[in-house]
């Protein structure tokens, strides 16, 4: 299966996915670390993909979303944004409602 199809299948299957450098225990860059903090603060149930462990994914994800950097958050198969946008959405409260709208998360 071609890398873009693999990415599409994965983001459509897993409700909340963060493509990042490193993982939630050991983020390898400040922007990735910040995104983890934001997702934790939202109480999100999410999976992470370490783009540093697969060069095909590292380039493929940028082509898939035509977004040049990582981290990238996907919710219900949709690209939500990178570190900047996640911060803006978190501060406005929009990110919490996006995350709560996904099944598997009980509204508080």
């Amino acid at each position: 299966m071609e890398i873009l199809e693999r990415i599409q299948a994965f983001v459509e299957e897993v409700p909340i996915v963060l493509f990042m450098k490193g993982d939630r225990m050991f983020p390898q860059c400040g922007f990735s670390g910040k995104s983890i903090q934001i997702l934790e603060a939202c109480g999100a149930e999410y999976e992470t993909v370490n783009v540093l462990s697969d060069d095909q994914v590292r380039q493929g994800i940028k082509d898939y979303s035509s977004w040049p950097t990582v981290p990238q958050l996907y919710v219900a198969g949709q690209f939500v944004g990178g570190s900047d946008i996640l911060t803006d959405l978190y501060e406005s409260g929009d990110l919490q409602s996006i995350i709560d709208s996904v099944k598997g998360v009980e509204p508080q």
């Binding site: 940028k62 035509s66 977004w67 040049p68 690209f79 944004g81 990178g82 900047d84």
Partner: peptide
């Protein structure tokens, strides 16, 4: 917001890559 940022990133794609 994403489309706005994609517009900007689109014109500096090479420099980001």
């Amino acid at each position: 917001l994403i489309q706005q940022h994609q517009l900007v990133y689109g014109v500096i794609k090479e420099e980001m890559a």
